[in-house]
Amino acid sequence: MTDKQKAKAYWKKNLKYLAILLSIWFLVSYVFGILLVEQLNTIRIGGFKLGFWFAQQGSIYVFVILIFVYIRLMNRLDKKFNLDS
């Protein structure tokens, strides 16, 4: 692979990761925490209504996890393409 092809393949893979992770990001906050909040509120975990919990707790936990997953995926990708500095 030439450098140019390599860069292209790397970028494509990166965009794929972004699409997947950002879909989860959208799902836990906008879908679970806002659009479907009332439906989810009919389910309860202990003292929490599920929709309310996603809006004030769950989404934030997922955000943190998403970034650390991205860090791992990208570090591996950098190594695979020999682009880590």
Binding site: L22, G33, I34, Q56, F63, Y70
Partner: peptide
């Protein structure tokens, strides 16, 4: 519940920052 906008809004932005 309305206060959730601040909680999600001011943390979710970091996902955008880190990824984009």
């Amino acid at each position: 519940y309305d206060g959730s906008v601040y909680l999600m809004g001011w943390t979710g932005g970091y996902v955008l920052l880190a990824l984009l």
